[in-house]
Design a protein around this nucleic acid. Structure first.
Length: 768
RNA sequence: GGUCAUAUAGCUCAGCGGUAGAGCACUACGUUGACAUCGUAGGGGUCACAGGUUCGAUCCCUGUUAUGACCACCA
């Protein structure tokens, strides 16, 4: 017997344990079509947050839906080593416990991180299980496990030998706190108020001066020119002359360049090629010298280029002292307040310095071509489609991808350097030694690259490496390309674009057919959730209070394309109430003594109007749901489930059959309810499995249900008749409420009702 | 600066070229053989604003405003 109260805590765990061996590929009949989804690997640092809850809910709904319908499903799970993020988290933990991380050898730190990973890696999986994620966990991959690491090296070496990876001295985004380069995507630009200082540079061999404007005076010692616009009448006469950089003996030429905006600042730009992206470009055009005056640590360098009074100072301090001195010496013409954007590192939160360093790059431009084509020609589709714009926009203006990181946690770049800068990129050290020997370089002269790869370099390989590449595996044959990728728009560039590029290059086939982009989850007032704001909605707490099914149903319900999700406790409560409704409907069927026998209704035959009607409605409902899945409209699907269960099944059918007792109606009630459980199962797996089990319908709904088919032909005449009866009932109820049971209108309607068959007239509360 | 969204009931959101929809909240009634974590009925909207297309616009087009996101960037 079902318990009176729906209490998910009492059965969720048990249900999961009873079903989890059905989550593996190959549990279906042979010959089934494959349906596969890549689980975006959560960071090993991770604990489940509500964004995860959303993405995994949607993926699990898709997987369960297809598994129920007989597809051979694979939901490929795994975790990501998340280079910088993880190293940062572990370093902080170590420091908190008194370890001097800076003093650790790289190897020691790496082994500490591994230890930490082993410890915390399982936590997120346990939480995913609690949510009901039906993934084959023993097939889980980690981006740094042995197989994955080999594949990463294979990819790196091939791309290098194909000329698509190169090493170059370029201006990169340097994080002075983490002391590593980062990619353009790892930068957060923030608009801030700043000051534009006008500084006088004296002309050489003349009394005059030229005034430049800058927000970064401390970089002036790296200036190697002053540039003006070629048509700027104010300055053209000065072009070719030289000016002296204050506090140095250095003079630099005044040059002209079309890039200069005559309206901005003073119209004169100090050109600092080593510390500014645009200046770097100007420098290249004019073959200017590049002088680095800022060190990797975010302090002024101690080199001769920097005046003695500033050497080694922290940038902000150097700026302050320099400005004081300029003012004192009358070189500060004026200053104005401006709004400008400052780049910050997304992990460290520190100001990013463009610095000239040797780094490894992927030639994204070349790889992007194919990845643009497959979206253009519709081989790969975004849902909602508008994200294709975003994708094209970025892909068509793509810049080389800086993939080297000066940290320890990650895939070490398989490169070895000879004594004069020779580079050997090979799969193993032995091969590198051999290659070096051919150039007359001995093993002892070789030095291995210490940089590691950007985390996203390995994530980009997720679609094919998880399935066994570079080996030719059954998994690859069966499940590549995958069916759909589900993820948030925030990683379209980081991950989706790069998976497409890498997959197309190495597999020559798309990695996934559809890309479903879901919304961001915000708090009830529409604010982005963050720890510092304290507005985090904890999915674990919600599951604890209302059950995993309620949370899943809510997230699906709120997944309206193109709109962010505002999640509040209230919503989850409503879903829990709806699940209770299903629970109670089951209890009614049970108290009514309805038996669930998988005889189906075909053998009994359906004659009654009401039964034709409910079956017609059920089949309509199932078709709607099928379409909702084609369209990835989980919001529609949940609305349809609510509508059918509440308005059609409970409020009308159940009410009607309270006064009806015959084998046909009982069999129909059983079959329709069994169908409801199957349709609702992807959205609320725990309660549906539990109900199916207790009612004796099935031990588990994971792989679908036989014996309760309702695909019989129904009479549309009967359906319409009952529809009009439903309408009549509403009129009667309304009339009675509005004008009382004595009104002429009411009595007339009531008389009409008498013409209807008994099981319909019997609806409680209307007709005695 | 560029691009893309969004704007509908008090709240959260669906929707549609032709009478405006749901849930929550609200009001009234109700414990009749599952369900008060409920049922029945009801009130409540110039569909952001201004133009245009149309027989007809909340819907399509243009513009404006507000909000949000992303990309680029200014010395």
């Amino acid at each position: 017997m079902l318990e009176k109260v729906y209490d998910p805590k009492k059965f969720e765990k048990e249900v999961y344990e009873a079903t989890n061996d059905e989550f593996y590929p190959g549990v279906v009949k042979s010959g089934a079509a494959a349906f596969s989804v890549l689980m975006p690997p959560p960071n090993v640092t991770g604990s489940l947050h509500v964004g995860h809850a959303l993405t995994y809910t949607i993926q699990d709904i898709l997987i369960r839906y297809h598994r129920c319908r007989g597809f051979d499903t694979l939901w490929q799970p795994g975790t990501d080593h998340a280079g910088i993020a993880t190293q940062l988290v572990v370093s902080r933990e170590l420091e908190a416990s008194g370890v001097d991380v800076a003093a650790l050898e790289a190897d020691e730190l790496i082994s500490k991180i591994w230890g930490w990973k082993e410890k915390s890696g399982e936590q997120i999986v346990r939480q995913q299980m609690a949510m009901g994620c039906s993934a084959p966990w023993s097939l889980s991959r980690f981006t740094m496990d042995e197989h994955f690491s080999k594949a990463v090296i294979e990819v790196f070496v091939r791309l290098y030998k194909d000329g698509l990876i190169f090493r170059e001295k370029r201006l990169v985004n340097w994080d002075t706190k983490l002391r590593t380069a980062i990619s353009d995507l790892e930068i957060q630009n923030k608009e801030e108020k700043g000051t534009l200082w006008h500084i006088k540079y004296e002309l050489e061999n003349s009394d005059g001066y030229i005034t430049i404007a800058t927000t970064r005076p401390e970089t002036m010692f790296g200036d190697t020119a002053v540039a003006v616009h070629p048509l700027d009448q104010r300055y053209v006469p000065m072009v070719g002359k030289r000016v002296r950089i204050p506090y140095t003996d250095r003079t630099v030429p005044i040059i002209c360049d079309e890039y200069i905006d005559m309206e901005k600042g003073t119209g004169c730009l100090k050109v600092t090629p080593a510390h500014d992206v645009n200046d770097f470009a100007i420098g290249k055009r004019h073959s200017l010298e590049m002088i680095t005056v800022i060190g990797m640590d975010g302090h002024m360098k101690t080199s001769v280029d920097v005046p003695e009074f500033l050497r080694g100072l922290y940038l902000k301090k150097a700026r302050k002292i320099l400005l004081e001195k300029l003012e004192e010496d009358g070189l500060l013409a004026t200053k104005e307040e401006v709004l400008h954007t400052i780049p910050y590192g997304d992990r460290s939160g520190t100001v990013i310095e463009p610095l000239l360093t040797d780094q490894w790059f992927v030639d994204s431009k070349t790889l992007a071509g194919a990845a643009i084509n497959v979206v253009e020609d519709g081989s790969v589709c975004f849902y909602p489609k508008k994200w294709e714009n975003t994708y094209f926009n970025w892909m068509r203006n793509i810049e080389p991808w800086c993939i080297s990181r000066q940290i320890v946690w990650g895939h070490r770049i398989p490169a070895w350097y000879g004594p004069s800068g020779e580079i050997f990129v090979e799969r193993t050290e032995e091969e590198a030694v051999e290659a070096a020997m051919r150039h007359g370089i001995g093993k002892e002269q070789l030095r291995r690259e210490t940089d590691v790869l950007d985390t996203w370099f390995s994530s980009a390989l997720w679609p094919f490496v998880t399935l066994g590449w570079p080996n030719e595996t059954e998994a690859l044959r069966r499940h590549y390309p995958t069916s759909v990728l589900v993820t948030g728009f925030d990683i379209i560039f980081f991950w989706i674009a790069r998976m497409l590029m890498m997959s197309l290059y190495f597999m020559k086939k798309i990695p996934f057919k559809d890309i479903y982009i879901h919304a961001l989850v915000r708090d009830t007032s529409g604010q982005k959730m963050s720890k510092s704001k304290g507005n985090i909605v904890d999915p674990l707490a919600l599951m604890e209070e209302f059950g995993a099914d309620a949370l899943r149903f809510t997230l699906a319900f709120l997944s309206v394309p193109g709109r962010d999700i505002k999640l509040g406790v209230e919503h989850v409560k409503i879903s829990r109430n709806f699940i209770t409704k299903i629970w109670n409907a089951a209890r009614f069927l049970q108290t009514k003594g309805i038996e669930f026998v998988d005889a189906g209704i075909q053998s009994i035959g359906v004659k009654r109007k009401l039964n034709h009607w409910i079956i017609a409605k059920l089949n309509w409902f199932k078709r709607e749901i099928a379409q909702d899945f084609v369209d990835y409209r989980f919001d529609y699907a949940t609305r349809n489930i609510q509508f059918f269960v509440r308005d059609t099944f409970c409020d009308f059918f159940i009410e009607a059959i309270k006064f009806q007792d015959d084998d046909e109606t009982r069999a129909v009630a059983a079959s329709v309810f069994a169908n409801i459980l199957v349709v609702a199962h992807p959205f609320m797996p725990f309660v549906t499995d539990h109900l199916a089990d207790v009612l004796g319908i099935s031990k588990t709904l994971s792989v679908g249900l036989d014996g309760y088919e309702c695909d019989i032909e129904t009479s549309s005449e009967y359906e319409q008749e009952v529809d009009s009866f439903v309408e009549l009932i509403h009129k009667i109820r309304s009339e009675r409420q509005e004008h009382g049971a004595e009104s002429a209108e009411y009595l007339e309607l009531r008389t009409k009702l008498c013409g209807w068959p008994g099981e319909l007239r019997g609806i409680a509360g209307i007709v005695r």
